[in-house]
Design a protein around this nucleic acid. Sequence first.
DNA 1: TTGAAAGCGTTACCAA
DNA 2: TTGGTAACGCTTTCAA
Lengths: 338, 338
Amino acid sequence: MTRNDPPRPVTIIDVAREAGVAPSTVSRALSNPDRVNVVTREHVQQVAARLGYRPSPAARALGTGRTSTLALVLPDITNPYFAGLIRGAERQAEATGHILVIGNSEESARAEARMVERLAPSVDGFLLGSSRLPDAKIVQFSAMRPVVLVNRRVPSVTSVSPDQQDGTRQIVEHLVALGHQRAIFLAGPPQSWLGGQRWAGISAAARRHHLTVRRLGPYAPSVDGGFLAGEAALADGATAVIAHNDLMAIGALRRLRSRGVSVPDDVSMVGFDNIFGADFCDPPLTTLSDRTEQAGRSAVDLLVALVRDQSRLDGETPAEIVAPTTLVVRESTGPVRR
Amino acid sequence: MTRNDPPRPVTIIDVAREAGVAPSTVSRALSNPDRVNVVTREHVQQVAARLGYRPSPAARALGTGRTSTLALVLPDITNPYFAGLIRGAERQAEATGHILVIGNSEESARAEARMVERLAPSVDGFLLGSSRLPDAKIVQFSAMRPVVLVNRRVPSVTSVSPDQQDGTRQIVEHLVALGHQRAIFLAGPPQSWLGGQRWAGISAAARRHHLTVRRLGPYAPSVDGGFLAGEAALADGATAVIAHNDLMAIGALRRLRSRGVSVPDDVSMVGFDNIFGADFCDPPLTTLSDRTEQAGRSAVDLLVALVRDQSRLDGETPAEIVAPTTLVVRESTGPVRR
DNA sequence: TTGAAAGCGTTACCAA
DNA sequence: TTGGTAACGCTTTCAA
């Protein structure tokens, strides 16, 4: 069987010849429409369309240094929490004419750094979600390529993060209102900035409300990690458990249940993230919710702005969006049994 | 505040000058190590490393026509079912030196086609997951760029799909063993090839085992869709419900529960996919499981092979991997109550 | 407003 | 085994 060579793609030169103008005019007519005569422009555009011309991203990138590609790097693609972020970022990337590449760091700072270095030559900028990198590394990267952080704040770097201070206040007040006096916090990975914020916020709010909180951990921010953590929580005797995230909360829930501990009758459980599943686990989970899809969109917008205006990268006060959070009260929290 | 220009990246020419060889030699030493003298090669590689040389993907792509980028297009990025697929594909892409871009078609065939056309100039090939496109369109695309289908089979196109025939057999035999005689199937989107396979497999197996199965739908393949479908299922009076996927099964579960129908005492429920949450919904769901992460890896391997060997694209019998499936029996299925 | 031509960084072909 | 050089397709000066 003989092979018919793939048709050579239509180039700007083909369009130029067909339209009877110079290649540079075609280029302008297509990407700088204002800088060309109306009739010429429309003629060129028609010819281009008729010939099925598709600009070569590689050639364009080589000339301009812009790839029209954005990278989204996450510690764990499979955490349902990130699904909304991915979707929001992808949508907005598409809306702004960009392609979104995805990177998974598997919860490892080293892998995250490698990923950024690997992707750097191919993308215009980075969205770092729940970055496990040390501040210094992030600052260093953001000097090379535009960076927008999601779920993390670092001085001088643009970011979008949920309001953990207000969120933890909501959690603590909810528990206090239910009569709880002793709670424990199941900590996630030490590299999690959000985890640090959560603990800090909980401690501060607890102090104000005379709630005693102990911190246990760190644990892996997964269902398995929560299962393990649930074991330790049992020993403490607190009436409320606040888990680093919903994954852990769900794991802990299973552990408690398997030990015959009733939630919320014996122990109340609170998570963070309001992930898929938080509303149908048993019992449905009280959790702090934030709008991840919106965060993804905003982050892309910020990143695109940075990319378009790299010259002002230094000296500018970077945007820091702090997004509102809402406590979603479900059946995993209840009044303390007397 | 003055702006310090970003340092001009190190090019192959810089390396050549520093190493005292020609640019073409540098190129070879780096990408075709065999075609260059050992000492020269090592010298060049050292110099390149010392200078921190990073090849320009754009320049390389322009020269070779290869972008080292693969696209993964999915109908719904947020469906937890796809998390494993994404992760497997991303891992294997990285392992084979590729970048993975992601596209979301939002369950729309038109959006999927647009996505493919938009991405085509930027990638070496496509992974189409649970594609909603008509066969003809897929064949057409695969003539332009290498395509590997996941969760779909189309004659003459390479694919990886779970064995639905065997899977549905397992489901039907499980239900029959529990004494069920009447079941209903809650159908998903008509464009879902897997949905078609599921219905076909169920019908065939049911016939062999004298199980009566009615088909209801189509419904949206989501929790909300399942909630709606649950309503309709109630009216039927069957003792078993097989949902198009776990999302729908979970939705239907909630609906039945809210109507006071006990699962599995009154009705048994079976899903497909074994997604995150299937093990902790209430009751935990009996569902047909397949290895999505493995599928993602295999699909990337197949795609990379196609890309590397485009010349044999026509005339070759394409690979069709049919992966095993396993019924995971949990508490949502039980014996028929007499 | 348009055209001509010089890059952009690699690869690949052809000589040497 | 190496070097010289012409692409690759587009953008962007610089002139006209």
